[in-house]
């Protein structure tokens, strides 16, 4: 293994509000970089995926991102940006 610097993935949480219902980027990413988690788990109640803020999209496996930008392209909310860190030549 040699050091590679991975792209920086930014999620604009104000735009991506219902990721579990949308799930487009989660299913588009070739290496499954993203994860989606419920923000609350309530006894006897299923979390409503359409209610904004009930789920949160997170970058879990950033080291596996190639900056292929497939996620950026599918996102209808323009909530994602993927860029190489400053100073790293593409």
């Amino acid at each position: 293994m040699y050091p590679i610097v991975a792209p920086i993935i930014k999620i604009d949480q104000a735009r991506c509000t219902t990721p579990f219902a949308c799930k487009l980027c989660l299913q588009a990413c070739p290496t499954a970089v993203f994860g989606v988690f419920e923000t609350k788990m309530i006894r006897l109640e299923e979390t409503d995926k359409h209610e904004p803020g009930n789920y949160r999209l997170r970058v879990i496996y950033r080291d596996r991102c190639s900056a292929c930008n497939r996620c950026v392209d599918v996102c209808p909310e323009h909530a994602l940006t993927v860029e190489m860190p400053a100073g790293v030549r593409a």
């Binding site: 988690f37 419920e38 923000t39 609350k40 788990m41 309530i42 949160r56």
Partner: peptide
């Protein structure tokens, strides 16, 4: 009492 909710807060 039984647990009412499990936290998985954004900052977990």
């Amino acid at each position: 009492r039984p647990t009412e909710a499990l936290g998985n807060s954004p900052n977990a």
